[in-house]
Simulated assay, not measured.
Amino acid sequence: MRIDVVSLFPEFVAQCAGFGVVGRAVERGLLSIHGTNPRDFAEGNYRRVDDRPFGGGPGMVMLVDPLRRALASARASGDGPARVVYLSPQGARLDQAGVRRLSSLPRLVLLCGRYEGVDERLVRAEVDEEVSIGDYVLSGGELPAAVLIDAIARLQSGALNDAESAAQDSFEDGLLDCPHYTRPVEHEFGAVPDVLLSGDHARIARWRWMQALGRTADRRPDLFAGRTLSKTDIALLREYQEGAVASPDPSPAIAGPVVGPERG
């Protein structure tokens, strides 16, 4: 997969591509990341890429033409069509389903805004979709682009040393992940739950699923909206909340409509 990032700080892109899972995906030829600077396509002695907004107000707005040329150059740098994604607070909030969808594409061009944003005419003419990583404002689109690249890299086949890691992450099945433990078994902060030491894979799987359900009810009950739970799931949630497995903040929401209808 190829990702081109249109940014005033392409060195930031290079830094992101050099570490961890993203760096490994690049080294293994699973992902290629390239930066394009709109300033290289600006005209005049000052290579200006922004100007004051019409209508007044603070800040500056990025100009159409340097961005247009930069996007055209990024598109032409690889084979086949590329989907242009603008990292913007006005975009649809990124979730794991969105990451999976974008990760399945052969090419992406990520547009990183700065200042007060990008001239709306450029967005309407050149952008395929807008994506937000949360309801807050950053100084530019570079950090959201790095977040998206990292999430996409994890889903490239062969990027992770253990493919099961991605399959068991939070949100992959629509729930939060279960808690994890490692050595030592005994510690001043507590002991590892006995079930994880039992060697009984069926019991361990049941405990992990109960924890995932319970943690989601405690911390993100909104993730149950529209989800159909089986009778087994509901029973595990009740067991979790009744204290068979400790829960720091039992949520009453599981008894209400948030869990959705039962499934046989």
Results as ranks from 00 to 15, higher is better:
142 E>D: 08
18 G>S: 02
35 G>M: 12
187 H>I: 06
30 L>S: 05
121 R>C: 09
147 V>R: 01
46 Y>P: 05
171 F>N: 02
44 G>R: 12
189 F>P: 05
168 Q>Y: 11
167 A>V: 00
224 F>D: 02
134 G>S: 06
35 G>L: 07
186 E>F: 13
52 R>G: 04
199 G>E: 14
105 L>W: 09
115 Y>D: 08
40 D>H: 14
140 G>S: 06
175 L>Y: 01
146 A>G: 00
1 M>F: 00
210 M>D: 05
50 D>L: 11
194 D>S: 14
151 A>E: 06
163 A>D: 14
240 Y>W: 05
261 P>W: 09
86 Y>W: 12
101 R>N: 07
59 G>W: 15
151 A>Q: 03
263 R>Y: 09
199 G>K: 13
19 F>L: 08
78 G>E: 09
168 Q>P: 07
69 R>P: 00
51 D>P: 09
139 S>R: 11
161 N>S: 11
121 R>Q: 15
136 Y>S: 06
126 E>Q: 01
113 G>H: 01
91 G>C: 10
85 V>E: 03
88 S>F: 13
144 P>E: 01
99 V>Y: 00
40 D>I: 13
32 S>K: 15
111 L>M: 05
3 I>K: 08
21 V>R: 04
189 F>G: 07
158 G>M: 10
63 L>Q: 02
44 G>M: 10
220 R>H: 09
120 E>Q: 04
25 A>R: 10
208 R>P: 02
153 A>N: 05
137 V>S: 05
20 G>F: 14
74 A>W: 10
21 V>P: 03
213 L>Q: 05
1 M>W: 01
7 S>Y: 03
214 G>K: 01
258 V>Y: 07
94 L>M: 09
236 L>M: 01
230 S>A: 08
92 A>M: 14
